[in-house]
Amino acid sequence: MKEMAVPQSADNIRPKPAALKKGRALKSKRSAYLLPSGFGVLFLLIWQLKGFHKVFHLEQYQLPIPSSIAVSIRENVDVLWSYSLYTGSEIVGGCLAGSLFGLIAAVAASFFPRTGRGGITLMASLNAVPIVALAPVMNNWFGDGVASKMAIVSVMTMATMAVSAFKGLRSIDPTSIELMNSYAAGKFQIFAKLRFRSALPHVFTALKINMSTSIIGAIVGEFFISSRGLGYLLSDQIKLANMPLAWSCIVIAALLGIILYYIVQVIERLVIPWHIAQRKQ
């Protein structure tokens, strides 16, 4: 046997030791927090120091700086708080009602898929429609209180839930159904033990999308018809050219959005832990 011929050129190609890779992983983990927060701070700093004002030739009455928005939030904390609750109740109520209606529609359609599918398709076309247009109609129906905005939010959310849940209820591994059939399980048992369970991840996905849709629906609804709420305050303060308070509404609405989103996420984690673990992998 000859000796292993190892040409010299190979020497300058260094193998990657495992330790080096690990170092890089650690670094990227740290940068996952540092970079975005640094970016956020930088953005706020440029804004505060009127960088955007200079670039876009804006005045402070057009685009208030962060500190004046913060001051405005502090000064109006009471009204912002009570309006947040008002708008929040529209969001939650409307989102739950709309999602529930969509879910019921999906379940009904899943029991009669042949006729149901057409109905779901029709509902899906609601998603392509700018629902804002319905705001004045809802005002005519339900007055200018919470109910009209809830109705807008419901209409905006039910299609997403119906489509998503229907998909979940119908897309089941055929062998699972065969397994249930081998136990001579009834249609309702298959639904309770199999279909509904498998649809839950889809239901939560729809719920999360619906949460952010709901905020838009409630706020836009209040632009049109309301004498209370964050959307009303926002459009009202713009008319009064009180920009810091208008921006405060945006900030509070954003916070509200994030909080509601996380609440849904926590519930999801409690209800379908098996799916969360799977998704992480």
């Binding site: 190892v6 040409p7 190979a10 193998p15 030791p17």
Partner: peptide
């Protein structure tokens, strides 16, 4: 992939 240790030669060249 690159080996942690040792090397591979293909036709007297590095796989790269």
């Amino acid at each position: 992939l690159e080996p942690t240790e040792g090397q591979i030669m293909i036709q007297d060249e590095h796989p790269r």
